[in-house]
């Protein structure tokens, strides 16, 4: 099994750390993983994306142009990555700030109102964990135990008191993700 994922959005949304937690979760279940960020003169507010590969085999190229799953968190990323999803693949997006919804018919599309949910929880920062939860519902490739272990590994110890709220956000994500049907 190999799963090739792109996570794309604004810098500051937690795109890179969500990818890191996912990659660590893969390590926790003895998978090969790679985490390849777009890097450049990009700061908070600019675009940020990361390619994560989880595999049972040695990973050849960590740099990809098509993906099994795209997790899209802003309009620029929708414009850039909708076409990069492999036929039969999966697109997950947060409708917040999206002006043009996905149009492809040959992929599965899911919506997750993660920004709204995180705001309701009173913790905007757990936005990325809500999204991660949604992804895990649609693609249960990593076991929840391993995600929690991965989360613990990714967070520096001084933030470990925040583990429960992150876990809660992941669980909310599992509940609120919905298949997107075009009208």
């Amino acid at each position: 099994m190999t799963e090739e994922i792109i996570i794309a959005g604004f810098g500051g949304q937690g795109v890179l750390s969500m990818g890191k937690i996912l990659a660590y979760s893969g390590i926790m279940q003895d998978q090969e993983v790679s985490w390849m960020p777009s890097y450049g003169p990009e700061m908070r507010g600019g675009t940020a994306n990361v390619t994560v590969i989880l595999s049972d085999e040695r990973i050849s190229s960590p740099i990809l142009s098509t993906f099994d799953t795209a997790i899209i968190l802003n309009q620029q990323s929708m414009d850039k990555f909708e076409e990069a999803v492999k036929p039969g693949g999966t697109l997950i997006y947060d409708p917040n700030g999206i002006t043009r919804h996905p149009e492809r018919e040959d992929i599965e599309v899911y919506q997750i109102a993660a920004a709204e949910e995180a705001s309701n929880m009173g913790m905007n920062k757990v936005f990325n964990m809500v999204v991660l939860g949604g992804y895990l519902k649609v693609k249960p490739l990593v076991k929840m135990d391993n995600v929690i272990k991965g989360l613990k590994k990714s967070l520096p110890e001084r933030y470990h008191h925040l583990l429960p709220v992150n876990e809660k956000a992941i669980k909310r994500g599992l509940e609120i993700i919905q298949e997107y049907k075009k009208n």
Binding site: I27, E32, V33, S34, W35, M36, P37, Y39, P62
Partner: peptide
């Protein structure tokens, strides 16, 4: 190179 330097693996 920049890719190997910036990439994370185990």
């Amino acid at each position: 190179d920049g890719a190997i330097g910036q990439m994370m693996e185990k």
